[in-house]
Amino acid sequence: MREITYRQALNEALAEEIARDPNVFLMGEEVAEYNGAYKVSQGLLDRFGPTRIIDTPISENGFAGLGIGAAMVGLRPIVEFMTFSFSLVAFDQIVNNAPNMLTMSGGQFNVPITFRGPNGPAHQLGATHSHATECLYANVPGLKICTPATPRDAKGLLKAAVRDNNPVLVLECELFYSHKGMVEDEDVDLLIPLGEAELKQEGSDVTIICYAQTVPIALAAAENLAKENINAEVIDLRSIKPLDWPAVFKSVAKTHRVVIAEQDRPWCGIGSEIAYRIQQEIFDELDAPIQRVSQEDVPMPYNEALEQAVLPSAAKIVAAVKKIC
């Protein structure tokens, strides 16, 4: 194990998969000569050349569709969106073409493509550049969605996504690119299966379910709660679709209280689905109403204080826990 950044972990995953499989290539805005808008693809053009690392014009609909067409005939494209806020320009390709093809063709054409890039609010980018898109895409059958929150998960999930035979969205955390964490040495072929949650911290009093940008704030909240003698169990979902229901149910059956911390907006949100499934499947295990901490249901304001008011935080999670503990 060694300590590397989230950015470096993604870079290694890209390099390893492109080196391993000649059908894998990286395409997107500024991925080649500029070395990536967030430097995730640093050095890849020099190493693999312009046939594998491909700059595109600003045409998300066009190059997302190009990737899907290439995947239909056997390539395994990695398409980078500079941010998933821009993936909305390619919404039709991601929602209508990639995940429908296998069913529409009666099983003849699968689409092994990875869409990746930063997702979720960053810092004062305003309403158009701050979208967390997991809710939108989780509604679509045929897509898989993962949300790595650590360098290790970033590397292992991205590599698994590239090898998956389906369209997978790797929703990275824009604010985490410089975060450091322990990751297996480079000679280890690190694969983290899609659909496996991780128990970040054991506890007995309440389960905090989190993912992506809410993972560090959930852990901070748990630390604060411990000082008040409330032992929180923290589960990082890591994948939104498929979602690790057994891990969720097991923890709730142990703690009987649930707070869901989500980085997206509340309406028809990830937390709505999780809360529904818990009460549907293990209603008897609940000792209190399920609490949710999410964004406020407003377009993201630019002003820093207002932005903070919209976002989930450790303090909001602590407050939600205290309502039921």
């Binding site: 569709g65 190009l66 899907i68 067409g69 390539l75 073409n97 054409f109």
Partner: peptide
Amino acid sequence: MYGGHAIVGAHVPLATGMAFAAKY
């Protein structure tokens, strides 16, 4: 025969992808 696509114009990018794969 790669479809059969019913959103007007949405398969034109797919065609460029298939051609891209052939050239690749």
